[in-house]
Computed example of a mutant assay.
Amino acid sequence: MQFESCLRKSLFAATLSLALCSAANFTVSASEFSDSYAAYQSAVSDKNYSDAQVYAEKAYQLGKEIYPKGSLDLANLALNLGSVFEINEEQTRAFDAYNEALAIYQTHFDDDAVELIEPLIGAADTAEKPQVARKYFIQAVDIAEDADDPILLANTLMSAFNKLSKTPLYSRKIQNYAIKAFEIYEDELPEDAMARVRATYTVGMIRKSKKQDTKAIELLNKVVKQFSVLDYSHPYELASHAQLVELYEKKGQSEKSTQHCIAIGSMRPWLDTQEQVPLYRLPPKYPVNSARAGREGMVQLSFIVDESGFVTDPKIIMSEGGSGFEKESLKAIKKWRYAPKFVDGKPVAAPSTVQLDYTMSKS
């Protein structure tokens, strides 16, 4: 899921107003420009981003004829163009457009002006090289830290985290961006604000990766609580339930994971032929004697997933490699957890199967 910060959205709205109002000062070309810009706005409103790109490019070219070179109006048109390029995954063109806007902004504003943050983040988000993205984000964060606007800082930090956490540059410092943003959101936003809920989930996953399971459980339960009041399912809600199943099972608290197994089952549209996917699986141990002999194997099992998502009545369908593989498979499968199937709004026991493969490393 692509993260769109409130920062980018709010500045984007201001851009539309400025560019369109300025065009009213012109004559013939201004009419054509205004028509193109109005079509661009309409396409954005309809989320028709292919048309939005066509009209954004046309408005930009017309703007170059009627606005002075290096004007803020041209910078704002370049920002709009960068935004639709980015949405349409034309990253190189988006990067160039954002940099054009940034260069103009830098001639109109001081180095620490908050107006620079939007083109900096745009350029960072669309930079091909992580090192380049980090350079732009550092500038944006430095500016935001000096501004008297905590939400601006939190949004900037989360933008940096969302991009850099997916690169080889991911580090404790990048993790701290998300943690600091979350702390700001907790102080400044209500519990049900989407930015706060997203940050809660993100920091919950950071705590989980650090083996801080108790803190992770606390945060992910907050996410579940906020989404539980909605009348629709959200991917963060589903993901949080799944993570809580794993965390509780690791702590040996199966009774607590059960409610999350059932919650997931109730959120999914079940098909009669649909195979169930484990929410928590304990890998079977490789039999010592088989490992010493270099012997590989496989085991196919059938079992019942009961109304609470527990595995019951496991049976061997077929196996290869010996009884050791069968024994370890039966031992492991009994500790797996599933989301129970739902029929007519109620959890029901349902049969399932799985194959466990035992292979030796080829190194």
Rank of each mutant, 00 (worst) to 15 (best):
V54A: 01
S228E: 09
M360D: 08
L238H: 06
L16V: 07
G294N: 06
N25M: 10
N25S: 14
Q259F: 10
G82R: 04
P269N: 14
K225D: 06
Y236H: 07
T107E: 15
P150H: 12
K210Q: 10
I121Q: 06
T156E: 03
D96A: 15
A154L: 06
Q41P: 04
T200P: 02
P168N: 13
R196S: 00
S228G: 05
A147M: 08
S254E: 14
K173Q: 15
K173H: 13
A52V: 00
Y286R: 09
R337E: 04
S31Q: 11
L271F: 11
L219V: 07
M194S: 08
I66M: 03
N99Y: 12
F303V: 02
M318R: 12
R207E: 03
Y136L: 02
R207D: 00
Y105H: 04
K208E: 11
Q139K: 15
G309Q: 00
Y170A: 14
S233E: 13
K135N: 15
E100Q: 15
A101I: 05
G322M: 07
E57T: 03
D213K: 02
I174M: 11
K180Y: 13
S257T: 07
I121P: 03
A123L: 11
E90M: 11
L102D: 04
E255Y: 13
Y105F: 12
Q253A: 13
L72H: 00
P269I: 13
K222C: 02
F161M: 06
K335G: 01
D357V: 11
L219W: 01
I87C: 07
I87W: 01
A19F: 07
Y105A: 01
K327P: 02
L72T: 00
S254T: 15
T92W: 10
G324E: 08
V197K: 04
Q61V: 08
I333L: 06
I174T: 08
V197G: 00
A123N: 10
S42Y: 14
P168M: 11
I104W: 04
Y98N: 04
